[in-house]
Amino acid sequence: MKGSLSWVRLLLLLGTAIVATLVHPAGRFITLASTTSTQNSGLFDYLLPEFTRKTGIEVRVVAVGTGQAIELAESGDADVLLVHDRAGEMKFMSEGHGVSRREVMYNDYVIVGPGSDPAAVRGLNDAAQAFRRIADAAANFVSRGDDSGTNRQELRLWEAAGIDAKSASGSWYKEVGAGMGATLNTAVGLDAYTLTDRATWATFRNRGDLELLVEGDPRLFNQYAVIEINPVLHPAVKASDARLFAEWLVSREGQALIGAFTIDGQALFFPNATTPEN
């Protein structure tokens, strides 16, 4: 019996030791809910250490689709949001979840597709027209289908094109319900068209036969904004540290850093804060 007891005791000790190492005292940190596009591009790896060095505040990034990021914030599980869906953001603000929304930077969406371009959209600068041609050719199109900012943008483009793409869901229109990277991987596998943000495309390494085919339509403009979460609705939110972060992003320093971030010599985000502050 002594044997079995000491066996259990050993397990208990081991368990306590391991759990103890996990519960190290957490330093000062905030949780940022943001999008896969900003994370996958490497922007955060470049930007956040600068902020931490300056303020001592660690920024923990949870990168999900814009829809899910907003939901996290609505549950009080994030201190600050950096997303790209103006309509969703405005709704979030009007419901009182956010205390301030500041535009930080922009880039643009692009339409990518197979090099053979069966819908003949290469070189168009009208995204809606490109979408109409894809639908007419019934060429494969992969949709995020995950209520992300990119997904919402895509749906607005179908609307502008006057096409009910959802009715073709399952045939040439394929909703994968996945992040941008997984969606691109699927598009590569299916030789399909898809809508992506430029930053993710620029850093995506598994392009296969896909090429950038359509860009430059003003409708493809992609604005990112930072939103502080309302501490009145969500008391656990670290409002003052979140404010420091939001203010830093739109400060001269933060804006300059964003503008200087490049991949293969190409800038991926363009700072456009309306009220740069020091």
């Binding site: 949780t31 896969t36 994370q39 996958n40 955060f44 790896d45 923990r60 990034v61 949870v62 990168a63 992040g179 941008m180 990277g181 997984a182 691109l184 991987n185 850093t203 995506f204 390494r205 598994n206 392009r207």
Partner: peptide, 21 residues
């Protein structure tokens, strides 16, 4: 949440790198 240096484990890192292509 797959937070770098905080909650990123092998499987979530694999998922992340896959999504980066």
């Amino acid at each position: 949440g797959n937070i770098a240096h905080h909650t990123r484990v092998m499987t979530t890192a694999i998922a992340l790198e896959t999504s980066r292509g």
